[in-house]
């Protein structure tokens, strides 16, 4: 048994175990950590295949960027307050099974044609060496043969970024509601309040009887910040 086989067994076993951990762990952060382990082992397998560039990219892009963002999000979730797992509508479930089966079949076909039937693709080891190495070979193929797919992928990413920015923007269409809540000035402590009607305590002024003081800012009197009424509006 060669060393290569031993390493392959170790890496792929670790990858599968980590993959199992992703679905088996109850805590979502533990699942994400298991996914990190799985991705690192995938990168190791890439390196064993002589695809160092893909291996390093796998780590930089998936482990270093995508999964950090995933962790970033789920770290803020309290795992004890998660809702029951929702498996989706029947149609969704059916569609996901079909898509999963198609993807699995694609991988199966690729494995069978490339290894069992020995139909090796154009980029053999000798060919890659002739092109100057992994990086050069991927660069040339990606920017010539697959240039269209490359551009479409970048377009999809741009759409994603623009969408995220649009969702994240504050809603500028709505008139901003600049109301200052003033809770608990005692009488006479503010010049602005002195212009208003005199009550025992501003806390007791019913909103509809209060006239706004002179000045730019509107002062709203309320006991409960959730239930205030704007002066000028009639109370709801």
């Amino acid at each position: 048994m060669s060393w290569e086989l031993v390493f392959f067994a170790v890496f792929s076993a670790a990858m599968l175990l980590c993959g199992l951990g992703v679905v088996a762990f109850e805590n979502p952060v533990h699942s994400a950590v298991a996914l990190v382990g799985s991705f690192i082992n995938v990168a190791a397998l890439f390196v064993m295949l002589g695809a160092e560039f893909l291996g390093v990219l796998q780590i930089i892009v998936y482990t270093g960027a995508v999964l950090v963002l995933v962790l970033f999000t789920i770290m803020l979730i309290d795992p004890t307050k998660l809702p029951e797992f929702y498996v989706g509508a029947p149609l969704q479930r059916f569609a996901s099974v079909v898509v999963g089966a198609i993807l699995l079949a694609e991988i199966g076909v690729a494995i069978i044609t490339r290894t069992a039937l020995e139909q090796i693709g154009p980029h053999t080891e000798a060919m890659v060496q002739q092109m100057g190495g992994n990086v050069q070979a991927i660069g040339q193929v990606m920017l010539s043969e697959y240039a269209l797919a490359f551009e479409i992928a970048s377009l999809v990413l741009t759409v994603g970024v623009v969408g995220a920015v649009v969702i994240g923007l504050p809603n500028r269409m709505v008139e901003p509601n600049t109301v200052t809540m003033s809770l608990g000035h005692t009488r006479g402590s503010s010049d602005m309040l002195a212009a208003g009607p005199k009550f025992e305590s501003p806390m007791n002024i019913p909103a509809e009887r209060y006239t706004a003081p002179v000045g730019e800012r509107t002062v709203v009197m309320t006991k409960d910040p959730d239930a205030y009424t704007h002066p000028g509006e009639t109370s709801k």
Partner: peptide
């Protein structure tokens, strides 16, 4: 001396950040 040495350092750096994130969490 691997042919993607510079990227290798970036990759180890990007795994290293997990120590900080997981430690903090």
């Amino acid at each position: 001396d691997i042919n993607v040495g510079a990227l290798f350092i970036l990759a180890t750096g990007s795994i290293g950040v997990y120590g900080i994130i997981l430690g903090g969490w």
